[in-house]
Every structure is written in structure tokens, then in C-alpha cells.
Design a protein around this nucleic acid. Sequence first.
RNA 1: AGGGGCGUCGCCAAGCGGUAAGGCACUGGAUUUUGAUUCCAGCAUUCACAGGUUCGAUCCCUGUCGCCCCUGCCA
Length: 561
Amino acid sequence: MSQPAIQLGPNFIRNIVDEDLASGKHKSVVTRFPPEPNGYLHIGHAKSICINFGLASHYQGRCHLRFDDTNPVKEEQEYIDAIKTDLRWLGFDWGEHEYHASDYFATLYGYAEKLVEKGLAYVCDLSPAEMREYRGTLTEPGKNSPYRSRNIEENLDLLRRMRAGEFADGSRVLRARIDMASPNLNLRDPILYRILRATHPRTGDAWCIYPMYDFAHGQSDSLEKITHSLCTLEFQDHRPLYDWLCEALEIYHPQQIEFARLNLTYTIMSKRRLLELVNEKHVSGWDDPRMPTLSGMRRRGFPAVAIRTFCERIGVGKSDSVIDMGTLEDCVREELNSVVPRAMGVLRPLKVTITNYPEGQAEEFTVPCHPKDPSMGTRTIPFSREIYVDRDDFMEDPPKKFFRLGPGREVRLRYGYIIRCDEVIKDPASGEVTELRCSYDQETGGGALPEGRKKVKGIIHWVSAAHAVPVEVHLYDRLFSVANPAGEKERDYRELLNGDSLEVLSQALVEPGLADAAPGSSFQFERLGYFTVDSKDSQPGELVFNRSVTLRDTWAKLTVK
RNA sequence: AGGGGCGUCGCCAAGCGGUAAGGCACUGGAUUUUGAUUCCAGCAUUCACAGGUUCGAUCCCUGUCGCCCCUGCCA
């Protein structure tokens, strides 16, 4: 696998790295992407991935994949596997450099003993409630734990017995001895190790004590000789602890740099909440096409390149931001537009009979697969007396500027004839339009325009009734009904879900050439948008198409106004 | 005795003392057998605000205001 061309623009992290390289602090760059395997990767992770791998490739360095697996109660092998799948799909390669914090458990434990021996850590017996009380508040200093003055021998003995499994879960912890009066709460004797009897996906029951994030992350960075440890803004307050531990342990000291996490309008990025959406069945799974997960987007039909382009475009900064979903959609359209073949599909069919076209007759039009890329070749589409058009392309009482079908109006069938609507048939009971009876101009086949004939403005897509393939189409809309669900403090985010985020169309029809479309393959249904064959719900002969994204639609914009 | 960050066009974002890049969005117009694509044009006399330093400040200093993060034995 080769590194994708990720071209991140200038940013503050690059400036720092440039200085480090210029000053000789570093000769090369080593970064890492450190997910906790407690859920699936989402577009926010993609930003981090692109920054870490992108920075490494920009400086011809390397980027490690490291699982931050220090909390066995939340982590699962399923997630480890899914993360690797998504990472590869995105186009990144970590080579031999796959690591797990759990690989370092023995070393980390050794570090803990070292800290105790230096008098910089102690075993504390305070209960969680007491711990909270002793910690103080944002404005008041904490107070020293009564166990803070235990001597080194006792601490070492206790730590070893913690590891040996002599004490109950939660009964004791190992703490760093720093400063209970620090204005930075992270420095008020933070917990380094907790007793936890849980089976770890990789180390099983080998350990009953597990290191906390702060005692694993920086140490893992150090062991891997990471030069620049990039993380999100909320870890800024942890940096002093990161630095303190590297100094106290006298180990290689990477530099932690924080950047703003990604937020996207109309969705959420919290793994905890995404898990809830899955568990509470608000969505069909982590890979539901409405989810902001990479697996969801892949299934929806978003190309990996589009996601990488998106990450390049949004840049890297330190200010909290919420990026418009339109930016992502534009990246998706841009990629799909250039690489995907065209096809015709009718979402909500309305029967049209061409009254002057001979019964039983049929013909085929040979048309390009792509309007601008001849290398994509041609395809044939059948035409006959009965066709289907989309209901949206007919209006009984059309407004100004509507140049599709209406009583007495002419339109061009894309790649076919010009037809005129002569008669509108309705269901006598409901008044619903059930059929259009039209006549065609046989001089206009395949786009021909006889001398002197006026050009028609409207061109609509269609499908031959006898030849069309019935399919199911899933239309997706934003998952949430408000732009920034995470910013809504008053209401539970579940109340903000968009009840109409999924629309299932079971009567859709596509041109016969799509009958054997492969799962995951994408097409542009002309005038409608990009559609991708669902890789999970499709059966042979029963295709399900996911609408990946619509086309830009200036008409829709006008009608809203 | 609170601390740590951030404020440049509707949304992102370059800029690092010499007079506001770029993308998305939006608005025109051209081409078009997709109301798509493509193309061309327009879109911040101004950088949260107020002072100060300077020949000159978005960039330096001071103050004010606004927003985000931190009181898990989560990461």
C-alpha cells in the first residue's frame, strides 16, 4: 500500500515541526494515531489520522498506529479490527508499526515502581468519594491524602500486592506525588494505576491493575520515540502532567501539541453518544449510512478520497469550530462527479404512454457513460411505448420557470425523443395522477433537432417500463434537525434527532444495465444525485441503492424561496 | 487561589511589523441533451473591542468583552 497524497496546507503544527527540524532538535518526524478501541472510527478521527499520517509523510517520517487500550471494560476486539479496516480503507499504511499500550504493561509497571522508589508516587487508600473531597474544587486547593506520607518501602510493598491481586477492585490506587494545591487539577496527585479485574481483549486476565491514560499515553509515546504527540484541545491541561512524568521517569520526552477537534453541522462526534444511538436502535448500527462513522460513510458511498480532500480543506487550528456539512458534501460530489458512470433511475415512477409509438416496438439508444470522459465508454438504453418518469417532473399547474412536464408541455427525454403531454389520467376516486399520455416527435430521436424546431428547455430522465429493473432506494437526510446538536445544552440530543433522516422508496426503477451492479459501486442517477449499491442489504436481484449525496439543485433552491 | 485555551468574510482558514491568500457557501453571467459539470465575474478599506509602542500593527504591549475546556479509580 502506498501513502496517499495528503496535502495539508501550512498550519501551526508544521511551523513547530519546521523549527524543530531547523534547530536540530529533531532529525526526523515520528507521529502516531492512538485510538482507544472502544468504538468505531468517525470523521473526527479521520481529521486526526490525516494530520498524523499527513505530517509524517510531508516530512518523510513515519506514523504509528497505537491502540490506547488501557481500559478493558470498554474495549473490544471487534473495535480493534474495525479500526484497522477503516484505516486501510481511508488509504493509510502503518507498515510494521502497529503497537498497543497493553504491549507496554510490564514496562509501565516498572515505571511505577521506579516512581515509588524515587518517592514520587504513593499508594492511596482513599475511597472515590473521599478522593473527590480531598481534591478540592476549581477555585479551592485540595488537601493532602493521609496516605501521602507513607514511606517508600510500604508503598513498594503495597504496589506489589496490588499487582498480585491481594486487594479488592477500587480499594487502593497508585498516585503521583505532585501538588494538591496546584491550580491545575491534573496535577493534584493524579491517579496512575487502579485495581480493576476485567478481562482485557489482548492481555486477558494477566493484570488486575491497569494504568490510567496519563500514565500510559506519554510513556507509550516515549517508548516509540514519537517526536510530536498530537492530540485534541481538551488535553491541554494534561500537558504539564505529561511533561512532569517524562521528567520524573527520566525518559525520552516527546512534545505534545494540541489542535481543535472536528465538529460537523447536523451530527455529533461523541463516541459515547454514537454508541447510544446504536444500542438504543436509533440507527441500524455503527455503519448506518447516516452515521458520521467511516464505516457509515463508506456504506453511504462517500469515497475515501473525498474524506481525505475534506481533511485537507478544513485545515488545522486551535479555535473551536463547526464545519458546514456542505463542505464535506462538496468533496464527495467533486470526486464522484469525475469518476462515476451515469445512469438513469426513477425514484417515484409515473407512467407515461407514448400514444403514437407503435405497440410492441422497442429501440435502443447508445449513450455515453460520462458526459465529459469518453474513456468511460458507452452503454445502451432501451426505449419503448411505455416509460416511467419521476413524479417530480410533472406538475398539473406548473409555476413560472418550471420547465418540465405539464399539460400541453414539451420536454426532451434525456438521450431520447421530445415528447408532448397530451392528456393527464387521474384516479377518479382520489384524483391522483396515474398516467400521462404523450406523443413523441420521431424526428428528435437521440437528441436530434430538426431544422427550425425550437429547442426545448426541459430535459428529464426516464426508464423503459418493460425493461426497467425494480430496486429499493434509501434517501438520507441529516441525522439531526439542528445545526449544532452538541451545543444544545437544554435538551437531550436524542430529542434533536431528525425523524425523517431515512426515506425508503420501494418502487424505484433503474435502467437494465444496472441489474448486476456490484455492492459498493456508485452511479450518478442523472439529475438526481449519486447512488451507491448498499453492501449489506442488497441481494442478488434485489438491489438497494443508498443516495450518497444529491446533485446541486438550483431549481430546488428557487422553489424554497 | 482558580487554571488552561481561543476570537481574521455566513462556515473553515493563510498571515508572524510594510498596508487582508485560498476553499466552502452565496450572487451575477457564458457554455451545456443532467436546472449537473465546466468557465468567467463579484463577495473583509478591514482582522472581538479600547488604549499604548512604532514612520507604519491583524501581527508587539496593556486592559476589557465573548466563547470553549478542566473538580472520572474514562480516553
